[in-house]
Simulated assay, not measured.
Amino acid sequence: MPPPVFRFAPSPNGYLHLGHAYSALLNADLARASGGKLLLRIEDIDRTRCRPAFEQAIYEDLSWLGLAWDGEVRRQSDHLALYHGAVERLSALGLIYPAFESRAEIARLVAVKETAAPWPRDPDGAPLYPGLGKQLSATKRADLIAAGVPYALRLDMTAAIALAGELSWQELGSGPDGETGSIAARPEAWGDVIIARKETPTSYHLSVVIDDALQGITEVVRGADLFWSTSVHRLLQHLLGLPAPVYRHHALLRDAEGRKLSKSTGSTGLRELRAAGVSPVDIRTMVGLGSAL
């Protein structure tokens, strides 16, 4: 049986903080304990926020923590054509449609609907897509695209679920309410999620399942905030004929007010902690991992 393959996949849209350190160190510990591999992936599809300086800082912070990875670093921005091909496959199945409402227009539509009753929200708290993109004729869609109107490519969730049927994943960690073991996927909770945009031929949901499959990832270790996103990932894996890794979601590190750590929290940034004289050993203690395996 081949050794397990883990990955750490940060986005270079800010500096790493203690939460990133915990996830990276946990992946490294699990890979080492199982005789497996640890891969590094740079998830840089958001070209408006990702910066080369942040990417370089990722390498510096991980090296300072004493982490090394196997093989070459995979950068998502080098594989946009590959993601576009997956969109085309989903489109050929009749599962993709363009939606032309802006974020502001969507907010207005939700506000109107909520004058009558609460509008459903996804597990992250964002309102489900309320627009009429799915109802536009092929001619109208073509006209809007030809006119240069911005659009998002959305997954027809009802049609996708009808094609895929019931799905589940194997959870070795736990979800927000302690869910573990075999977890029934609930992709319908996300509505018609965005798969790509006019200016970016992929989304996080799409690129992450393609990359995990192509890199041979066998165990995805990540924060519990992505637990229910796995429902969408399982659906896309099934639709695209990709293997499903097992998942291990871990608790999130939080600040003194109980908020999830973010890249804007300088007090938890690895660069700031390093400058203050904190050592890599101290970091392991701070995130609750103790000494290295």
Results as ranks from 00 to 15, higher is better:
153 L>M: 15
164 A>H: 07
165 G>V: 10
150 P>K: 15
168 S>E: 11
172 L>V: 01
175 G>A: 01
168 S>H: 10
173 G>N: 02
161 I>W: 05
168 S>Q: 09
159 A>H: 08
160 A>H: 03
166 E>H: 11
177 D>L: 03
156 D>Q: 11
157 M>L: 14
151 Y>D: 09
169 W>P: 02
156 D>L: 08
154 R>V: 07
169 W>E: 02
155 L>H: 12
168 S>P: 05
164 A>P: 05
172 L>D: 01
161 I>A: 10
149 V>G: 12
159 A>C: 09
157 M>Y: 10
168 S>G: 08
151 Y>C: 11
169 W>A: 04
166 E>M: 05
169 W>C: 03
167 L>N: 04
170 Q>C: 11
178 G>C: 08
152 A>P: 04
167 L>S: 05
168 S>K: 03
149 V>L: 15
167 L>G: 05
171 E>V: 03
153 L>P: 10
177 D>A: 05
153 L>Y: 15
166 E>P: 06
175 G>Q: 01
153 L>D: 10
172 L>N: 03
152 A>T: 13
173 G>D: 01
155 L>V: 13
153 L>G: 12
163 L>I: 09
168 S>T: 11
163 L>Q: 14
169 W>M: 04
149 V>S: 14
171 E>C: 03
170 Q>S: 12
176 P>G: 01
154 R>P: 05
164 A>L: 09
162 A>G: 12
165 G>W: 07
160 A>M: 05
151 Y>R: 09
160 A>S: 09
176 P>W: 00
155 L>R: 11
176 P>L: 01
161 I>L: 13
177 D>H: 04
166 E>Y: 06
156 D>T: 13
150 P>N: 15
156 D>E: 11
155 L>A: 13
166 E>I: 07
150 P>L: 15
177 D>W: 01
150 P>S: 15
173 G>S: 03
177 D>P: 00
162 A>V: 09
174 S>C: 03
172 L>S: 02
152 A>W: 07
160 A>C: 07
156 D>S: 12
154 R>K: 10
156 D>V: 10
150 P>A: 15
174 S>V: 00
154 R>D: 08
168 S>A: 13
157 M>C: 12
149 V>T: 15
166 E>K: 13
151 Y>Q: 12
152 A>Y: 06
